[in-house]
């Protein structure tokens, strides 16, 4: 028998409040191109991205600590597939442990030739040093900065 289908799409807009901690973090990025973490007083660990409480000790964080701009790659991936609503491939992104931080923050890796996957994966390795680059025009967002290999 003839079987019918019906098309539907969800497109819902939100305006998410970021809260005091993330707002302060993003204002420093936007206005001063500087990165900060929050220190957990109990463990002494600096959490980046900054959180108002530690998910390990469950204590409120108490102190802002400037981190980066250099750091090392903790993990990465290189995307070659187009996913709906996500950027056009190829692109590389992952997590970087910024200097003086104890946890890694996500960001794009730019300035790397991604045409050969095996070769690109040899360039982007766990432990490789990177530096943070900031956009000229910053809006107060995680996409205001990205990482490039330190030697460049």
């Amino acid at each position: 028998m003839e079987l019918l289908t019906r098309k539907e799409s969800w497109n819902i807009a939100y305006e998410h409040a970021l809260g005091e901690t993330a707002s302060w973090f993003y204002v420093q990025i936007r206005d001063h191109a500087k990165l900060y973490g929050r220190r957990d007083p109990k463990s002494g660990r600096v959490l980046v991205p900054p959180r108002s409480f530690s998910d390990q000790t469950l204590e409120p964080t108490t102190e802002w600590v400037e981190v980066g701009p250099a750091g090392r790659i903790e993990t990465f991936t290189i995307v070659y597939e187009q996913f709906k609503t996500l950027p056009p491939p190829p692109y590389a992104f992952g997590y970087v442990l910024l200097d003086r931080a104890d946890t890694a923050i996500g960001g794009f890796f730019r300035g790397i030739d991604l045409s050969d996957p095996a070769q690109a994966a040899q360039t982007l390795k766990v432990g490789v040093r990177v530096n943070t680059r900031f956009a000229e025009k910053r809006t107060g967002d995680i996409l205001d900065f990205w990482f490039e290999l330190e030697s460049k």
């Binding site: 998410h16 991205p49 993990t75 996913f83 709906k84 996500l86 992952g94 960001g107 995680i142």
Partner: peptide, 29 residues
Amino acid sequence: QAILNKIWDPTYERQLPLTTITMLAMSAV
């Protein structure tokens, strides 16, 4: 994957193309 990107926190992580594939590719690395 377009849907699963929405499981990430809109404050710090949603802006990145995190999906279950990229998340677990990073586990593989």
